[in-house]
């Protein structure tokens, strides 16, 4: 398996909220890194996972599929997913694939944290 061109860092901001900072590309190769970051971000008290897309450089349709499967996994843990830092282009992709129906997108980390 070719290596993933992405680095993800999980931050537990409060006992109930964690942020995953994404830097690089989201394609099929990012699956392991995304799931590792989610495991790191998720604690028994975690209720909200926020994805920080500020560092997103490239995403293909397999990458969107990964976000969908992560969303389902998060929802099944009775958690919810929020997002911020999406460029106009990636906001369009979320709209096109109708991910924005299920994931609230915020303009900044502060706005996402306020809603968490």
């Amino acid at each position: 398996m070719p290596q993933a061109n992405v680095v993800m860092h999980a931050r537990r901001v409060t006992p109930t909220t964690s942020i995953i900072d994404i830097q690089g590309d989201i394609s099929a190769f990012a699956e392991q890194e995304l799931m590792r970051a989610y495991t790191e971000a998720s604690a028994p008290t975690t209720r909200t996972i926020i994805l920080n897309f500020t560092g997103l450089e490239y995403m293909n349709s397999s990458g969107i599929g990964l976000i969908v499967t992560l969303l389902i996994r998060i929802n099944r843990q009775k958690q919810r997913m929020l997002a911020f830092g999406l460029s106009d282009h990636y906001q369009h992709i979320f709209e096109l694939t109708r991910l924005n129906d299920a994931i609230k997108i915020y303009t900044s980390e502060a706005a996402a944290l306020a809603a968490a």
Binding site: E95, Y106, T107, A110, A114
Partner: peptide, 13 residues
């Protein structure tokens, strides 16, 4: 729909 501080929605650009 985008959300900003205070949870107020704002339209896409």
């Amino acid at each position: 729909m985008l959300y900003q501080d205070g949870g107020q929605p704002r339209p896409y650009p």
